[in-house]
């Protein structure tokens, strides 16, 4: 189980003599069970990426903590990293290498045995339908193929928790479906999947539970029916807009 407890993150900005503190995330708490896909929704600047970076050990929370079973992000960074697979939306893999080489390399970085790397490669290449292009240089691949490669690399060590920041951003519908189907299959096999997205249609179809994050605060949290029942709207998109548009949703 993954547990986020009162997570807060502040950044100190200094411009000239002025110093100000920006609260990117405030007192965020939620938890995810194995087999669950959790969608973190919010507009740009809401704190989604910061939250995911805290979850993936890239940045330290100002206060609060994140737990995977008995391990927390502050004290057990290395163990924590072995349990997560992290993918950012803006990543461009080095085009000079092949997907096969990069998988081997990331496997070694995760201290995996060669035979285990081979097993994982075979499984991921098949699941993501990558076998046709694993020996081509990444430069020669299409955007969709590159995204599949990035997904496969981030999961080479078969992590318990999958954290993807905007996993379908910029993808065509076919690749987008391949990636979301893959995430569903991972959740079905008992993994925890946490994604951030702007795409409400994908979120509704994919996620079991949602958190709506606005200005660093969790405004709503729960299943689709929990969120809709607690509001005067009949779909997730309208609920979402009611929080981010001034004076509520008047679309």
């Amino acid at each position: 189980m993954l547990r986020v407890e009162n997570l807060s993150k502040e950044f100190r900005n200094s411009r000239g003599r002025q110093r100000n503190v920006v609260k990117a995330v405030s007192n965020l708490s939620f938890q995810c069970q194995p087999g669950e896909i959790y969608g973190l929704l919010g507009p740009n600047g809401a704190g989604k990426t910061t939250t995911l970076r805290c979850l993936s050990t890239l940045i330290k929370p100002t206060s609060g903590n994140v737990w995977i079973d008995q391990y927390n992000v502050l004290e057990h960074g290395q163990i924590f990293r072995s349990k997560i697979g992290f993918l950012t939306s803006d990543m461009k893999l080095d085009g000079y290498f092949t997907p096969d080489y990069m998988m081997n390399w990331f496997g070694q970085l995760n201290k995996m045995e060669d035979c285990r790397i081979e097993q994982q490669k075979e499984k991921l290449f098949n699941d993501l339908q990558m076998t046709d292009f694993i020996h081509k240089k990444i430069d020669q691949l299409s955007t969709g193929m590159k995204q599949k490669t990035a997904v496969a690399i981030s999961l080479i060590h078969d992590p318990e928790v999958i954290i993807f920041d905007e996993p379908t951003s910029g993808l065509d519908v076919i690749t987008s479906k391949a990636v979301t189907d893959f995430l569903v299959s991972r959740a079905d096999s008992g993994k925890i999947v946490i994604i951030s997205t702007h795409n409400m249609t994908i979120a509704e179809k994919l996620c079991h539970r949602f958190g709506i994050l606005v200005d660093g605060e969790l405004k709503e949290e729960g299943t689709l029916s929990d969120i809709i029942e607690g509001s005067s709207w009949d779909n997730l998109e309208d609920v979402f807009f009611s929080y981010i548009l001034p004076g509520g949703n008047h679309v």
Binding site: S56, L58, S82, L87, T88, F106, L109
Partner: peptide
């Protein structure tokens, strides 16, 4: 610039 540093940092090294 490529965003790959984050992936490198979330590994075991």
């Amino acid at each position: 610039e490529r965003g790959t540093l984050a992936m490198l940092l979330v590994n075991q090294v």
